[in-house]
Design a protein around this nucleic acid. Structure first.
Length: 655
RNA sequence: GCCGCGUUAGCACAGUUGGUAGUGCACCUGAUUUGUAAUCAGGGGGUCGGGGGUUCAAGUCCCUCACGCGGCACCA
């Protein structure tokens, strides 16, 4: 440790060079002393890795790094500065609007405003224009530390009541920092770049929305404007392009184009599965059924509806009654559609006396659960009110928790790999404030899951990343959440493993242990796809509809060039079907160009074109989706190739 | 559920200051037998999301409900 009273501090530069400067020298002065050009292009600095204002006095020994606006660490500053500039622009355009908070988020920034009149789409370009003016003015960002009273008085006089609340929320040991950009100022913890001009021109406001003050739906609703900014126009253009790419993959759009499913207003949040979509769905279930059977699960089916008192007993009515579908029968008994499968599985466990020798007992079900989700939450197939879980409950002794969780993890990663999801991220959500069960049991369960995480990290050679999500566990136990990264880099949380000491006891389930004593089993809840409906949607977007052959609802289409080939085309289709391939035939009196186009748009992976030549030589011309080339080969050879290719990866033994 | 914006033919969209609806693709019919991403010609199709109101007159204005979209909140 350096002597705090020393008059000099030692700075270590990225190249390892060290230099002593007077305590309190600003970063800007250091940069200037090295070279004026360095000072000119530097917009901020990092001290021991932490971003700081370039004008900050340096009061301790530190590793120092000067940050130019094109350096990676500057991106969050560009965005944060842009948020401030947007706030100023809005207040200039609509005086009297209150500003609240404006943080940087994953792909940009937002600022929340309190304004009586809503923003309109036409407002965004106006705000952007005004932002451009403010940036062009290039006023320096300057920081001041105000007293609490001074800050509160200032904001109160200005009518900025939300800011007054924010000042009050700042812990007593922290300074009240004010950043000025010309005449405009904002309460902010910083840091900022040297001046507004450093933001540059590569910014864009993207959307506006309602958002609750402090994220609480009991609070007033503010108006949020989202935007993004990059160091260069090229990066912004690339970002915009990526958004467009995501729109092209939207499962709602592809689902319609590929004739997979539809929605209609009489059944909000419910899917009408068309034949092709249902084929895909059933292919997924068949896959998972094979995997689970191989892993020692026994598949069951529990009632879709049970009497309300049953759900009162399980605790679901109390906690989620408002989100359950209910119906009153002619005999006046009230029934509820199951929102979860677990209570049903406990009944199956309870049927017949269980011994410790029966554990671990793995009960699985492709159960369709019904949850009355808030209307605003519904989103295509990704958030629906009726969905099928690849659900399972593993009844174990406490000693078996760790081993079973590890087995689940192995199965989970293998399954994701088969769908091409190699990039998996696992979050451990630990005990929440509101919970049931003793701390002892929580210790044990969290330890088990954390050991699982360690083991997984070790085995994967760092491929699988993990993190702790403190306080985010379920009220009955900690959980592991599996997050997949798709083909265009988006995260999807799918699988979950949850350890539960509560429900089995609550529903009176027990087993007989080695000492002939009744003991309550621990339940491990787990789902791997999660919601089959949601997973289907994710797959559609991940593959952009271009499914691998084994998943594709229609695997091949036989298309004729001339009607003379119709008979042979029928033979080709019959042979494909006999080989187990899902096949259509297109004998229409149309040009082959049209047929190729239409089946390509429907994203059929394999097109077998037959004309006069193929019919005579018993060959097929194979054209793959996405390719403009075709390959002529003998019929038997083609069928053998496609049959092999269509074998599901688990059956083929591919790891 | 909350805020904002939408809802016009199967799909994608036009529709001026209110004066009883259009385009493209799809569909149907006919012609065309065609070699790897749109053959030509003709034709049919909409009580403009539901309900209510203002008006001589409403797809256009107002209210209301439903659904959708973008967020927020929620997600056992």
């Amino acid at each position: 440790m350096a002597d705090a009273s020393a008059s000099e501090v030692t700075l270590t530069f990225p190249d390892g060079a060290q230099r002593k400067v007077a305590r309190g020298t600003s970063g800007l002065e250091v940069a200037k002393s090295i070279s004026p050009s360095l000072a000119k292009r530097t917009v901020a600095m990092q001290l021991d890795g932490a971003l700081a204002d370039l004008a900050d006095p340096i009061s301790r020994d530190a590793a120092i790094n000067f940050v130019a606006r094109t350096d990676a660490p500057a991106l969050e500053l560009i965005r944060h500065d842009a948020a401030h500039v947007m706030a100023e622009a809005v207040q200039q355009l609509w005086p009297g609007t209150q500003v609240t908070i404006g943080p940087v988020i994953e792909n940009g920034f937002y600022y929340d405003f309190a304004k009586a009149e809503p923003f309109t789409p036409e407002d965004l370009p106006r705000i952007e224009k005004k932002m451009g003016e403010i940036i062009a003015r290039n006023a320096p960002f300057t920081k001041e530390v105000w007293s609490r009273e001074e800050a509160k008085r200032y904001f109160k006089d200005k009518g900025e009541l939300f800011k007054v609340e924010l000042v009050d929320a700042i812990p007593a040991d922290q300074d009240i920092k004010i950043y000025k950009q010309g005449a405009w100022l904002d309460l902010c913890r910083g840091p900022h770049m040297t001046s507004t001009g450093a933001i540059g021109k590569a910014f864009k406001l993207t959307k506006f929305a309602g958002a609750y003050w402090r994220g609480d739906s009991n609070n007033p609703q503010l108006q949020r404007i989202y935007g993004t900014a990059f160091a260069s126009q090229d990066e912004l253009d690339a970002y915009v392009k990526q958004i467009e790419e995501a729109e092209k993959r939207d499962h709602r759009k592809l689902g319609r184009e590929m004739d997979l499913f539809h929605f209609q207003e009489e059944a909000p949040g419910s899917i009408f599965w068309h034949a092709k979509g249902w084929t895909l769905f059933q292919t997924l279930i068949a896959y998972m059924r094979r995997r689970q059977q191989a892993a020692g699960y026994m598949e069951v089916n529990s009632p879709d509806m049970m009497e309300k008192h049953f759900w009162e007993l399980s605790g679901h009515w109390e906690n989620y009654g408002e989100n359950m579908f209910t119906t009153t029968l002619p005999d006046e008994r009230v029934f509820c559609c199951k929102p979860m499968n677990c209570p049903g599985h406990v009944q199956i466990f309870k049927h017949g006396l269980k011994s410790y020798r029966d554990l671990p007992l793995k009960i699985s079900e492709f159960g369709k659960v019904h949850r009355y989700e808030p209307s605003g939450a519904l989103h295509g197939m990704l958030r629906v009110r009726h969905f099928t879980q690849d659900d399972a409950h593993i009844f174990v002794t406490e000693d078996q928790i760790m081993r079973e969780c590890l087995a689940i993890n192995d199965l989970m990663l293998s399954i994701y790999g088969h769908f091409g999801f190699e990039d998996v991220f696992i979050k451990l959500s630990t005990r929440p404030e509101k919970r049931v069960g003793s701390d002892e049991l929580w210790d044990k369960a969290e330890k088990a899951l954390s050991d699982v995480l360690d083991e997984v990290t070790k085995r994967s050679n760092g491929r699988v990343k993990t993190a702790i999500n403190p306080g985010e566990g379920a009220f009955y136990g900690p959980k592991l959440e599996y997050v997949l990264k798709d083909a265009i880099g988006r995260d999807w949380q799918c699988g979950t493993t949850q350890v539960d000491f509560n429900l089995a006891g609550r529903l009176g389930a027990f087993y007989i242990d080695e000492q002939s004593q009744k003991r309550t089993p621990v339940m491990i809840h787990r789902a791997m796809f999660g919601s089959l409906e949601r997973f289907t949607g994710i797959l559609i977007e991940n593959f952009a509809g271009h499914f691998p052959l084994w998943l594709s609802p229609v695997q091949a289409v036989v298309a004729t060039i001339v009607s003379d080939a119709d008979g042979y085309a029928g033979e080709v289709q019959a042979a494909l079907k006999a080989a187990g391939l899902r096949t259509d035939i297109d004998l229409r009196n149309e040009k082959i160009n049209l047929k190729v186009r239409e089946h390509s748009l429907e994203k059929v992976p394999v097109l077998l074109v037959v004309g006069k030549r193929e019919a005579e030589e018993r060959k097929v011309s194979i054209r793959r989706l996405g390719s403009d080339k075709s390959q002529v080969m003998g019929l038997d050879e083609a069928i053998a190739m496609l049959r092999d290719e269509a074998v599901p990866p688990d059956v083929a033994g591919r790891v």
